[in-house]
Design a protein around this nucleic acid. Structure first.
Length: 430
RNA sequence: UCCCCGGUAGCUCAAUUGGUAGAGUAGCGGACUGUUAAUCCGUGGGUUGGAGGUUCGAGCCCUCCCCGGGGAGCCA
């Protein structure tokens, strides 16, 4: 019976066939230990001289690492085996003898590993990280789907910028001139929210910023919910609920993966409601009190962010921002136009901003005013302005960066490890 | 775009004051019936990122270039 390594403990005493790759081989003369991985786990196969015909035994000698193998044998419980069970092999088929495998069971530098990303994916930590990533994606979709949201995806090719063109990748688009790779689906799902009420888009976005840090990718995935009739407090509750749901899902389904990643689950267990909520003004006061300079109309730089979350076990929500440093579409407080009804969520443990969002400007006249003040091309936004001409309502949403969230959950040093094939300033291969 | 650090064997690194470039690992050959990154013996492997300069002599010092890493800004 063909079985997954993961399921072997339920089949002790039976015979099983495992199809996978040779993770490591240890030979001790008349006994071979073959560690075989199949995507669900690693199992140790044991074959002693005399257990199988001599040619079969000899065939096990010197099988290179990562050779594709199909092994068959009796499942036995054995405390000496990693994982608690092992296979006493009666048959070993080598599907392909691997050429000498570049990634050894030793340390490698980041440049080497990234150049071999297509092979590095097979290693333990990338394996665990991709599985956590999958669970985070599932948690996000389940969270929204179970609350009556409809998934409406936004286009990747867009005709113009959301917020200026300096950070956009430009591509040729037939006879239409230049198109740009989207940096956010927000404007489009605002339209969809006026149709379906509660919507989210979830897909890749692109930023042509020349960032070179452990928190940035040029291509990353973002989930963006948008809710009709939602106000800033609704959006903050939604963001809080989503993050709590993600952390709970990872803790429930990824214990083994966290262990492989050497990620202490304790900080994730502390991610519970309520999150501390500070207005931008209160946050500035806190940062200054902790000895880091910050003006009332400043955005958070790296040191300010660090001071803000110092000592916090939960994410910190900063809301009511100076309108001057927020995007044109963000709604101003009608009672105080100097304040924008935005919210950022800063993760603890130095993982930084994972969410940015808020309430949108729903008043046509004020939106026009903002577009003119920022000298944005009005024609490009005509369709967007239509949303305010035909049945405008208060509404809002946010964007959550998938990779930063995965990085946080996994405790990963660098964001490039949270995506299968990272795209960065100086790296586009493989 | 700016600041800092690095580039030596396939990989990870060492090389004292400027004085014959070395180890582990991977590879190859051999030994070993419970290995846990197995161990032990033997063995091949180098345009020291590139170009120029200083010097009797440069992996090491100087100049320029290339590549990578970390950080800032920007943001998710």
């Amino acid at each position: 019976m063909i079985l997954s390594v993961r399921d072997l403990p339920q089949h002790v005493g039976e015979e099983a066939t495992v199809r996978g790759w040779l993770y490591n081989l240890r030979s001790k003369g008349k006994i071979h230990f073959l560690q075989v991985r199949d995507g669900t786990g690693i199992v140790q196969g044991v074959v002693g001289k005399g257990d199988v015909p001599d040619p079969a035994f000899a065939a096990c000698e010197g099988i290179p690492q990562e050779s594709s193998v199909v092994v068959t044998g009796a499942v036995r419980a054995d405390a000496r085996a990693p994982g608690g069970v092992e296979l006493h092999l009666r048959d070993v088929q080598v599907i392909q003898r691997s050429e000498p495998y570049p990634i050894a069971l030793q340390s490698h530098g980041p440049d080497f590993l990234l150049r071999h990303r297509h092979l590095w994916l097979r290693s333990r930590k990338p394996w665990a990280t991709l599985r956590v990533r999958h669970q985070v994606i599932r948690a996000i979709r389940d969270f929204f789907d179970s609350q009556g949201f409809t998934n409406v995806d936004a286009p990747i090719f867009t005709p113009a910028a959301c917020e200026g063109t300096t950070t956009l990748f430009e591509v040729k688009y037939f006879d239409e001139g230049n198109a740009y790779l989207t940096q956010s689906g927000q404007l489009y799902i605002e339209a969809a929210a006026m149709s379906l009420g509660k919507v989210y888009c979830f897909g890749p976005v692109f930023r042509a910023e020349r960032s070179k840090t452990r928190k940035h990718l040029t291509e990353f995935w973002m989930v963006e919910p948008e809710v009709a009739y939602a106000t800033l407090p609704d959006i903050m509750d939604l963001a809080e609920g989503l993050i709590v749901a993600i952390a709970a899902r990872v803790l429930e389904n990824c214990r083994e993966e966290l262990k492989v990643l050497e990620r202490d689950p304790a900080p994730l267990e502390k991610i519970r409601k309520p999150f501390p909520r500070l207005t931008h003004a209160e946050a500035v006061k806190r940062v200054n009190a902790r000895g880091v300079a910050m003006a009332a109309d400043d955005d958070f730089g790296a040191p300010q962010e660090e001071a803000l979350v110092q000592g916090e076990e939960r994410p910190v929500m900063v809301y009511r921002w100076p309108s001057a440093i927020k995007a044109f579409y963000m709604k101003r407080d009608p009672a105080d136009p100097a304040v924008a009804l935005g919210v950022d969520v800063i993760a603890p443990e130095g993982f930084g901003e994972v969410i940015g969002g808020g309430q949108r400007e729903d008043d046509l006249a004020k939106l026009l005013e903002r577009i003119e003040a920022e000298k944005l091309p009005k024609e490009a936004f005509e369709w967007y302005l239509d949303l305010r001409r035909y049945g405008t309502v208060p509404h809002g949403g946010f964007g959550l960066g998938l990779e930063r969230t995965v990085q946080w959950m996994c405790g990963t040093e660098h964001i490039r490890e949270t995506v299968p094939f990272p795209r960065m300033l100086y790296r586009i291969c493989p």
